Deep mutational scan, measured.
Amino acid sequence: SKDTIRINGIDIDVKDLHEEWKRLVEEALKRGDEELAIELLERALKE
């Protein structure tokens, strides 16, 4: 798994994120759902 995830052309540092969150965000991006990916990231970062 990578340490960054690219959303809207912005590389976001996710190395401190739990693997499960990372996977969910990557799944959302694979489906092209950037809005969901951002929402998941925000939730993950609050934890």
Rank of each mutant, 00 (worst) to 15 (best):
V14C: 14
A28V: 03
K2N: 14
L17K: 01
R43C: 09
L41F: 04
L24D: 04
K2H: 12
D13H: 11
K30E: 15
I12D: 01
A44K: 02
G9H: 05
K30M: 12
D33L: 12
R6F: 06
D13W: 10
E39M: 08
E47M: 05
I7D: 01
G9T: 03
K2M: 14
E26V: 11
G32W: 03
R6D: 02
K46C: 06
T4C: 11
E39R: 15
K46D: 06
A44C: 05
E19S: 04
D3C: 06
W21S: 14
I10F: 06
E20G: 10
S1K: 11
G32R: 02
D13N: 14
R31M: 11
E39D: 06
G32P: 01
D3G: 08
L29C: 03
G32M: 04
L41E: 00
V25M: 12
G32H: 05
H18K: 15
K46F: 03
L29I: 10
E47I: 05
I38P: 00
E34N: 15
K22W: 07
E27N: 05
R43Y: 03
A37F: 03
K15A: 11
K15C: 05
G32V: 01
E47C: 09
E39I: 14
R31Y: 08
I12M: 09
I38S: 12
D13A: 08
L17E: 00
I38T: 06
R31S: 08
E34T: 15
I12G: 01
K2A: 14
G32I: 01
L45R: 14
L41D: 00
I7A: 02
I10Q: 11
D16S: 12
G9E: 05
G32L: 04
N8E: 04
E35W: 12
A37K: 00
I7H: 03
N8W: 01
L40E: 01
K2W: 12
I12R: 09
L36H: 09
K46V: 08
G32F: 05
D3V: 11
R6A: 05
E47Q: 10
A44Y: 11
I7L: 09
E35G: 14
A28L: 10
K30W: 08
E35D: 13
G9M: 06
R6G: 04
A44E: 01
E42G: 08
R6S: 10
I38Q: 14
L29S: 01
R23W: 06
L40A: 01
E47Y: 00
E42W: 03
L45V: 12
L36S: 07
D11G: 04
K30P: 00
D11F: 06
I10W: 05
D13V: 12
N8V: 04
E27H: 03
E39G: 08
R43M: 12
K15D: 07
H18S: 15
G32N: 07
D11T: 08
